[in-house]
Amino acid sequence: MDVFMKGLSKAKEGVVAAAEKTKQGVAEAAGKTKEGVLYVGSKTKEGVVHGVATVAEKTKEQVTNVGGAVVTGVTAVAQKTVEGAGSIAAATGFVKKDQLGKNEEGAPQEGILEDMPVDPDNEAYEMPSEEGYQDYEPEA
Results as ranks from 00 to 15, higher is better:
M1E: 00
M1F: 00
M1Q: 00
D2R: 01
D2Q: 07
D2G: 00
D2C: 03
D2V: 00
D2I: 02
D2H: 08
V3A: 02
F4L: 10
F4W: 07
F4M: 02
M5C: 01
M5R: 12
K6H: 02
K6A: 10
K6T: 04
G7C: 15
L8K: 00
S9Q: 11
S9P: 00
K10A: 11
K10G: 01
K10M: 12
A11Q: 00
A11F: 03
A11H: 00
A11P: 00
K12I: 03
K12C: 15
K12T: 07
K12G: 04
E13Q: 04
G14S: 14
G14A: 15
G14C: 09
G14R: 07
G14L: 10
V15Q: 00
V15E: 00
V15R: 00
V16E: 03
V16A: 05
V16I: 11
A17K: 10
A17L: 05
A19T: 04
A19P: 00
A19Y: 15
A19H: 06
A19M: 07
E20P: 00
E20I: 06
E20Y: 13
K21W: 10
K21G: 00
T22R: 01
K23L: 12
K23H: 05
K23W: 14
K23G: 01
K23M: 12
Q24G: 03
Q24T: 12
Q24V: 06
G25T: 12
G25L: 05
G25K: 09
G25D: 04
G25M: 14
G25I: 09
G25A: 07
V26P: 00
V26T: 01
V26Y: 11
V26L: 08
A27T: 03
A27I: 15
E28K: 13
E28P: 01
E28A: 13
A29M: 08
A30D: 00
A30E: 00
A30K: 02
A30P: 00
G31T: 02
G31E: 06
K32N: 06
K32Y: 06
K32I: 13
K32A: 07
T33N: 00
T33Y: 10
T33C: 03
T33E: 00
K34Y: 14
K34W: 15
K34G: 01
E35Q: 04
E35M: 11
E35H: 08
G36A: 15
V37M: 08
V37Y: 03
V37P: 00
V37R: 00
V37W: 12
L38V: 10
L38R: 09
L38A: 06
L38K: 10
L38I: 02
L38Y: 13
Y39L: 05
Y39F: 08
V40A: 05
G41A: 11
S42G: 07
S42P: 01
S42Y: 12
S42D: 04
K43S: 04
K43L: 09
K43G: 01
K43I: 05
K43N: 01
T44V: 12
T44F: 11
T44M: 14
K45L: 13
K45Y: 07
E46C: 06
E46V: 12
E46I: 14
E46W: 04
E46G: 05
E46L: 02
G47A: 15
G47H: 12
G47M: 08
V48K: 01
V48A: 04
V48M: 09
V49D: 01
V49A: 10
V49Y: 04
V49T: 13
V49W: 09
H50P: 04
G51P: 01
G51T: 13
G51E: 01
G51N: 10
V52M: 10
V52A: 03
V52S: 02
A53E: 08
T54R: 14
V55A: 10
A56C: 05
E57H: 14
E57Q: 05
E57A: 07
K58H: 11
K58W: 11
K58C: 12
T59V: 12
T59R: 02
T59P: 01
E61Q: 14
V63Y: 05
V63S: 03
V63C: 07
T64E: 08
T64I: 13
T64F: 14
T64M: 07
N65K: 03
N65Q: 11
V66F: 11
V66K: 02
V66S: 03
G67W: 09
G68A: 07
G68F: 14
V70W: 08
V70R: 02
V70A: 04
V70F: 06
V70T: 02
V71D: 02
V71G: 02
V71L: 12
V71N: 07
T72R: 04
T72Q: 13
G73D: 02
V74M: 15
V74H: 02
V74N: 02
T75S: 07
T75K: 08
A76P: 02
V77W: 14
V77M: 09
A78D: 02
A78G: 06
Q79Y: 04
Q79H: 15
Q79M: 12
Q79K: 10
K80T: 09
K80S: 11
K80W: 13
K80Y: 11
T81N: 03
T81I: 08
V82H: 04
V82P: 02
V82F: 07
E83L: 04
E83R: 13
G84C: 05
G84E: 07
A85T: 11
G86N: 14
G86D: 05
G86H: 11
S87G: 08
I88W: 13
A89Y: 07
A89N: 04
A89T: 11
A90D: 05
A90S: 15
A90F: 05
A90L: 13
A90I: 02
A90Q: 14
A91F: 15
A91C: 06
A91D: 08
T92M: 03
T92Q: 04
G93M: 02
G93E: 04
G93Q: 05
G93D: 06
G93P: 06
F94E: 06
F94L: 08
F94W: 15
F94Q: 15
V95A: 01
V95W: 12
V95D: 08
K96M: 11
K96W: 12
K96L: 08
K97G: 11
K97D: 13
D98L: 14
D98H: 15
Q99L: 15
Q99F: 04
L100N: 06
L100D: 07
G101W: 04
N103L: 08
N103D: 10
N103S: 12
E104D: 08
E104M: 13
E104W: 10
E105V: 12
E105Y: 11
E105G: 05
E105R: 15
G106H: 05
G106R: 11
G106K: 06
A107F: 03
A107K: 09
A107E: 14
P108M: 12
Q109A: 03
Q109I: 08
Q109D: 14
E110R: 09
E110W: 03
E110V: 05
E110K: 03
G111V: 15
G111Q: 15
I112H: 12
I112D: 04
I112A: 03
I112F: 05
L113H: 09
L113I: 03
L113A: 13
L113K: 07
E114D: 15
E114V: 05
D115A: 11
D115L: 08
M116V: 01
M116E: 10
P117H: 06
P117C: 12
P117F: 04
P117K: 07
P117Q: 12
V118L: 12
V118Q: 02
V118I: 07
V118W: 04
V118R: 06
V118P: 14
D119P: 15
D119L: 04
D119Y: 01
P120L: 10
D121P: 09
D121K: 10
N122T: 09
N122Q: 14
N122D: 09
E123R: 08
E123G: 05
A124C: 08
A124H: 07
A124W: 09
Y125V: 12
E126W: 02
M127T: 04
M127C: 05
P128G: 10
P128L: 11
S129I: 06
E130T: 10
E130F: 10
E131W: 09
E131S: 12
E131K: 04
E131A: 14
E131Y: 13
Y133M: 11
Y133W: 06
Y133C: 06
Q134T: 03
D135M: 08
Y136T: 02
Y136E: 03
Y136W: 10
E137G: 06
E137A: 08
P138D: 10
E139Y: 14
E139F: 15
E139D: 06
E139A: 15
E139C: 02
A140Q: 03
A140K: 13
A140F: 05
